[in-house]
């Protein structure tokens, strides 16, 4: 029962976010960049401006709709890169051990020691601003937790009898990692990947704020949120709605991840 609720709500919210991401331009009332009108600056939500307007008098509803594209692309894209890197390094390090494990551990410590935003900044400085480089920069800098967790899982799983049995049956290392280790480390990895997505959406905001991500007039949820800081007491709707959008997306992804993990785990399924 609980599983179905998780999946249904998470799936619904995620679908909503993705729907907005794809069809946002059609849902928007006005152009999010061009339709600035200082006469309408900082109007509170009304029938005409559902989410109110910002300092430049732009319709926040329209900007939230358009912003979904950038925020979701960066969030999902960079989390995919993070998860791929973290899992590959973590599982191989935990399974093989030895010098490779030492190397990966050193690298993970390095990544944890350097603030990831600073590191992303450096990468952005090399790649230049833009959506793709933003995704790569955030994707290369946030894999250390995934790596730590999947390494710990792999360490625990590799000593299990079924991994030894696979070896005795003649399985090669890569096959063991894919069929025996990875499926048994997937639960926590999914949770971390979906949890981290909120973080990357916000990190995109920080980089955009510093002028290295999405250039200012283009809307993204993160940049809208950082622009709204000064008016949080006088015009809270400026930060409320992009914040809600991020909240709903992250909540949906987390619930979906949770539900997926339960479905993927045969032990939590009911006996047929």
């Amino acid at each position: 029962m609980k599983i179905q609720a998780n999946l249904a709500i998470g799936g619904g919210l995620t679908a909503l976010a993705l729907f907005v991401g794809v069809f946002g331009p059609w849902l928007a009332h006005t152009d999010p960049i061009m339709d600035a009108n200082l006469m309408n600056a900082e109007l509170s939500p009304s029938a005409e401006f559902w989410f109110g307007t910002d300092q430049q008098g732009r319709d926040i509803w329209s900007r939230v709709m358009y912003g979904a594209q950038i925020s979701l692309t960066v969030g999902i894209g960079s989390q995919l890169i993070n998860t791929a890197i973290g899992t590959t390094l973590g599982v191989t390090a935990g399974y093989w051990g030895g010098w490779w494990d030492d190397f990966v551990n050193g690298l993970t410590n390095l990544m944890l020691a350097i603030p990831s935003l600073i590191f992303a900044l450096a990468i952005m400085a090399i790649l230049g601003p833009g959506l793709t480089s933003l995704m790569i920069a955030l994707g290369l800098t946030n894999w250390s937790y995934t790596c730590r967790i999947s390494r710990a899982q792999a360490l625990a799983v590799r000593t299990q009898g079924y991994v030894q049995a696979a070896r005795v049956l003649g399985y090669g290392d890569v096959r063991i990692m894919f069929t025996q280790i990875l499926p048994n480390t997937l639960g926590p990895i999914i949770v971390i990947a979906t949890l981290g997505m909120g973080g990357t959406i916000l990190a995109e905001a920080a980089l955009s704020f510093l002028g290295l991500g999405v250039r200012p007039p283009a809307p993204s949820w993160g940049s809208m949120l950082s622009d709204a800081r000064e008016t949080i007491t006088t015009a809270p709707w400026l930060s409320l709605f992009p914040g809600l959008a991020i909240f709903i997306t992250v909540l949906g992804l987390n619930l979906l991840g949770d539900g997926l993990r339960d479905v993927l785990d045969p032990q939590s399924r009911s006996r047929r």
């Binding site: 299990q160 009898g161 079924y162 030894q164 049995a165 696979a166 005795v168 049956l169 069929t179 025996q180 499926p183 048994n184 993927l264 785990d265 045969p266 032990q267």
Partner: peptide, 15 residues
């Protein structure tokens, strides 16, 4: 081939 000691740890729970 080998038969393992602990039948709880020697079967992959996801297969």
């Amino acid at each position: 081939q080998m038969v393992f000691q602990d039948p709880y740890a020697s079967l992959n729970p996801r297969q």
